[in-house]
């Protein structure tokens, strides 16, 4: 009888824990990938990748890299649901006048994927980040 009660209490507890877990707010992509340190790592890797790509580097020839780094970290943070504020310009304004081709855009996506991979993101996490960033693609191409 005692063991039955013990077992019942145990099962009840497990049940409560399971329910509590279900009620917890879903973790943001930002938290899932590892928060601010990972945002910084991705951004630094991305800058590194760009600096080794002749074609894409051209677009950044006149860019203030320190400012780009700061704003890109913010942008990644906000886009993935992190607790930041984006203080940079819109994607349209940033890319306007650069006439970015589809091929160069896709090459840059490849560079960003490499940056995320080096920052330790799993393939599903990389896809989720691309999914949120891809929404503004139209503002970046051929502007």
């Amino acid at each position: 009888m005692v063991s039955f009660i013990k077992a019942s209490v145990l099962i009840f507890c497990l049940f409560l824990v399971a329910c509590a877990n279900q009620n917890k707010a879903p973790e943001s992509l930002y938290d899932d990938v590892g928060g601010q340190p990972v945002m910084i790592k991705i951004t630094d890797n991305f800058i590194q990748e760009i600096s080794f790509n002749r074609t894409i580097y051209q677009y950044f020839a006149k860019t203030n890299i320190d400012r780009f780094r700061e704003k890109f970290i913010e942008y990644l943070c906000v886009s993935t649901g992190g607790p930041c504020q984006y203080t940079g310009d819109t994607m349209l304004k940033v890319h306007q006048g650069q006439k970015i081709t589809e091929a160069d855009f896709n090459t840059t996506v490849d560079l960003l994927v490499a940056a995320m991979k080096d920052a330790g993101l799993t393939y599903p996490q990389q896809n989720r980040v691309l999914e949120v960033l891809a929404k503004t693609r139209r503002e970046m191409l051929y502007q």
């Binding site: 599903p124 896809n127 989720r128 691309l130 999914e131």
Partner: peptide, 9 residues
Amino acid sequence: HLGLVAGYD
């Protein structure tokens, strides 16, 4: 669909 099935395309 990017990342639709548990993060897989």
